[in-house]
Design a protein around this nucleic acid. Structure first.
Length: 527
RNA sequence: GCGCCCUUAGCUCAGUUGGAUAGAGCAUCGGUUUUCUAAACCGAGGGUCGUAGGUUCGAAUCCUUCAGGGCGCGCCA
């Protein structure tokens, strides 16, 4: 164990850290007997070797905590919105990253005792939906009346549209003469089937949401007006004109008076329109209303998981939450960078519109859920993730999930061999326990687990968990193999096992199980 | 033009909210299997942490400059 307390105190008091360390060391030696050795190293670190007595008391504490080892008591309520993929088709590989990130972040926060609502915002309103429904209609015409499907720019050509068309046809005897006459029916049915597809994809990835909120229902409930009225009163919304957009040309742009949200007050580049040319609400206006609804549900903390292509949206919506909650609630937007898909050694472009994207379902047909989950978290969410289709399909040693699972399988293998069963309420006593240096390394790693959880939770960085588990597994595999070189490091000798080894393995097991439970990745007993 | 993210070994990336001699995997080279699971392990080579400054006992980490890459910049959703 090591402490940098002297350096911190030195900074505060402007004193020499080495001198402070000497003083602290004296105090420690006088007052505490749990230390075997205390010494000063480097610029003023205090290194402490724990006595067996102290070690045992820590181990007993871990056994007592068991499934909650690593967690700390927090009791905030969270709303985490993630996935929220448009209901115009199945999920693609890019969506799965945010989905898994959000899901594991939720598990992590729950592990610490927080209450978490996992929410999905269904964008079942607007032009995309019109185009989606039109696509379904045209496919129906194609099937029923042999009219060829002309692929216009705005339409969705993917095969799943044909599937939806077939499903609708098999249940309905309507003639489908005009889109207009069948519009409401088609919209309802198409959305039902596309959401079924998405939910099924999510389920296969091990993800389920607690709450689904429909954009259309927000619009119909007039929440938009309520939200905007409140913002008008606090002077965040006004009628006015906006400058022409700087980024891309838009021929439809017109300078007319409309309601705008003053997002520049929150660091945005420009104020944002709440109304379109024709006076109808923009997507942002509806989203504002949705977040008004979220704010009214009184969570302690709001989190949105967004794709990289929505970074420009963050200032606006975070500002909106501040304005709507009168600075009482804070929305944190976390961004997942792109997933770059590689196949046959070259980049594989995804496009939802063209219909040639790799869907989550395609992926799941070839790679198991555990590997996908682990791989998607094996990067910080802030960096692009290279997903090598071929490599993941190989199911080889390149895949780190196997490595961690294998560690678990080896421990279980030992337990099987000696017919060991974990007992409840075990109390370890000081006796013939004597950890060697390899075991101490592993214990040290196990003791780090709560710190990993704390950082991962505070920073919303669940990727730290797979990295940590991988490191723990490395130490274990390394120690295991010592037995190949030297008989005395064999775990089992003549059917017996050292008490210290048994303890060490039980501790590793606790951490592996707690960690993988948060990741929702399985731990097979045999591989 | 503006905003956000990134730049660490040949490649892909970690890096403890500022700590000790910067770490893994892959790739390269060389070793280890009558076994408690070799889906594993051990060893070797490989670094000016993009650049230039600053903050301090101490910087890959914080601040500023510049360069390179990605994403975005709608009255689409």
């Amino acid at each position: 164990m090591s402490s940098n307390i002297s350096m911190i105190l030195a900074k505060l008091n402007k004193k020499d850290p080495n001198k402070l360390s000497l003083n602290i060391m004296d105090l420690l030696k006088k007052n505490i007997t749990d230390f075997k050795k205390v010494e000063i190293a480097g610029p003023g670190f205090i290194n402490i070797n724990l006595s067996n007595k102290a070690l045992i008391s820590i181990i007993n504490k871990i056994f007592k905590e068991g499934k909650s080892f690593g967690s700390y008591k927090a009791k905030y309520s969270y709303n985490i919105e993630f996935v929220s993929a448009n209901p115009t088709g199945p999920m693609h590989v890019g969506h799965s990253r945010g989905a898994i990130y959000g899901d594991v972040l939720s598990n992590l926060l729950k592990f610490n005792g927080n209450k978490v609502i996992k929410e999905y915002y269904i964008n079942d309103y607007g032009n995309q939906i019109n185009n989606f429904v039109k696509s379904v209609f045209l496919r129906i015409r194609e099937i029923k009346y042999n009219e060829s499907f002309v692929n216009e720019k705005e339409l969705y050509p993917g095969d799943y549209i044909i599937e939806i068309a077939n499903k609708i046809l098999s249940k309905s005897k309507l003639k489908f003469n005009s889109l207009k006459d069948n519009y409401n029916f088609l919209t309802k049915e198409s959305l039902k089937y596309s959401m079924e597809m998405i939910k099924s994809d999510l389920k296969k990835l091990g993800i389920s949401h607690d709450s689904f909120i429909s954009e259309k229902s927000i619009v119909n409930s007039k929440t938009v007006i309520k939200a905007i009225n409140q913002l008008k009163r606090s002077n965040y919304v006004e009628e006015g004109f906006l400058e022409p957009p700087k980024g891309i040309k838009n021929e439809d742009w017109k300078k007319t008076k409309r309601l705008i949200f003053k997002s520049t007050l929150f660091g945005d580049d420009t104020n944002r329109a709440l109304q379109k040319n024709d006076g109808s609400w923009t997507y942002f206006a509806n989203d504002l209303a949705y977040h008004f609804n979220k704010v009214s549900r009184n969570y302690d903390r709001l989190i949105n998981i967004l794709g990289a292509d929505h970074t420009g949206y963050i200032r606006r919506i975070e500002g909106a939450v501040k304005a709507l909650s009168k600075n009482k609630q804070i929305l944190h937007c976390k961004v997942c960078q792109l997933v770059k898909l590689y196949k046959d050694g070259s980049p594989f472009k995804m496009s939802k519109r063209s219909g040639d994207f790799i869907s989550v379902n395609d992926l799941l047909n070839e790679v198991n859920k555990d590997s996908i989950r682990f791989m998607m978290l094996n990067r910080s969410n802030d960096v692009e993730l290279e997903f090598d289709f071929d490599k993941v399909l190989e199911k080889s040693k390149d895949n780190p999930v196997f490595y961690v699972q294998y560690c678990h399988a080896r421990i279980q293998s030992i337990f099987r061999t000696i017919d060991f069963k974990s007992k409840k309420n075990k109390q370890v006593k000081i006796g013939d326990i004597n950890f060697n240096k390899y075991e101490k390394e592993i214990l040290k790693k196990v003791f780090e687990w709560p710190k990993i959880i704390k950082i991962a939770s505070n920073k919303y960085e669940p990727h730290r968990i797979p990295f940590y588990l991988y490191e723990l597994a490395t130490l274990f595999h390394s120690y295991w193999s010592k037995g190949n070189e030297d008989e005395k490091f064999k775990f089992i000798k003549k059917g017996n096992i050292d008490k210290s080894k048994l303890l060490m393995m039980q501790l590793v097991l606790i951490v592996l199980q707690n960690g993988m439970k948060i990741l929702n990745v399985s731990l097979p007993n045999k591989m």
